[in-house]
């Protein structure tokens, strides 16, 4: 729904296998993903990781919200690729493969562009799967068992718990504006009121934090937990397998000196040009759309 559209990164309640995995086991996977993604430059590995994360979505029943959340990757990813094609982050000399207007396109950076993109896509997708299937309090409880510093844990839990509150804020303000006859739909309707939503949300957060502290949130002493987070044998298996597999691959990559396979792959000039055109179009499309919406007010 429209409320979900604005900030699609909250927990989606459910009872799938993925939902039931212990938060620590999931966290092991997320950390493992990030470590592996940043220790390898093997695009086969990176995109397999991304694909694996994507495959978890239908199992958890979060395909739609996950894809919505992943939309943020469009401007990021397209600008990244386009940049690597016109200004590769590798040492010169570069081999020109074509020209578009004043721009010279090079094939040398495209592999690295795909690596950067793969790292972000893989890590973000799995992190989203985790956030969307994990109850914030469970994560909080688990992290405090792991002796994660309280303040850090507190901030993380607050952030995750406030997201649905913000989502609702946006939805509510939109219905209020509509019932006073405001024209427009969806995202373009939210944009003009972004500032007030933000101001209102800050106020809300302040009052909420007063209410939370007044109920002892953050106080010293022993804490208990109403939600019982269990560590079943299967959770141990999942966690250990994750740690071993992802850790092992990371170690192997580092041993292979990032396991870069660019020499095995040849990108045809046509592929480079087409990639550039698509990325640049996507990127400017998003930018223009945003500008258009903010002017439309």
């Amino acid at each position: 729904m429209s409320m979900q559209a604005a900030l699609p990164v909250a927990m989606i309640p459910g009872n799938s296998i993925i939902h039931r995995i212990n938060p620590i086991a999931k966290l092991v996977w997320v950390v493992g993903y990030v470590v592996l993604a940043f220790s390898t430059q093997n695009i086969v590995v990176l995109y397999s990781m991304a694909l694996f994360a994507l495959l978890l979505a239908p199992i958890a029943g979060i395909t739609k919200p996950l894809l919505k959340g992943a939309l943020i990757l469009v401007p990021v990813g397209s600008s990244l690729l386009a940049l690597q094609i016109i200004a590769p982050a590798v040492e010169r000399p570069w081999t020109p493969v074509g020209e578009i207007g004043p721009l010279t396109l090079y094939g040398d950076g495209i592999y690295y562009g795909f690596v950067l993109l793969g790292r972000i896509v893989a890590s973000l997708l799995l992190a989203l799967v985790m956030v969307m299937t994990t109850h914030p309090s469970d994560l909080f409880t688990s992290l405090s068992k792991l002796k994660v510093p309280y303040t850090l844990n507190f901030m993380l839990a607050m952030t995750l718990q406030l997201i649905p509150v913000f989502q609702r804020e946006v939805g509510i303000i939109m219905s209020a504006q509509k019932s006073r006859g405001m024209k427009g739909k969806g995202f373009s309707a939210v944009l003009p009121s972004f500032v007030p939503v933000f101001v209102g949300a800050i106020e809300r957060v302040q009052q909420l934090s007063i209410s939370l502290e007044s109920r002892g949130f953050g106080s010293n002493g022993i804490k208990t937990s109403y939600r019982q987070v269990r560590g079943r044998p299967s959770d141990w298996v999942i966690g250990i397998v994750g740690a071993l597999a992802l850790g092992g691959l990371s170690a192997y990559s580092i041993w292979r000196g990032t396991w870069n396979i660019s020499s095995d792959i040849v990108f045809s000039p046509l592929f480079v040009v087409v990639t550039f055109v698509i990325s640049a179009t996507l990127f400017f499309g998003v930018v223009l759309f945003a500008v258009f919406l903010s002017l439309k007010k």
Binding site: P136, P164, L208, S219, S225
Partner: peptide, 23 residues
């Protein structure tokens, strides 16, 4: 402004958890 949890039971539990009341 006082609602912060995902379920009614957890909302009531919040203060109890912070006070260390056993499960």
């Amino acid at each position: 402004f006082q609602m912060s949890q995902m379920s009614v039971a957890e909302e009531v539990a919040l203060g109890l958890e912070n006070a260390g009341v056993p499960y």
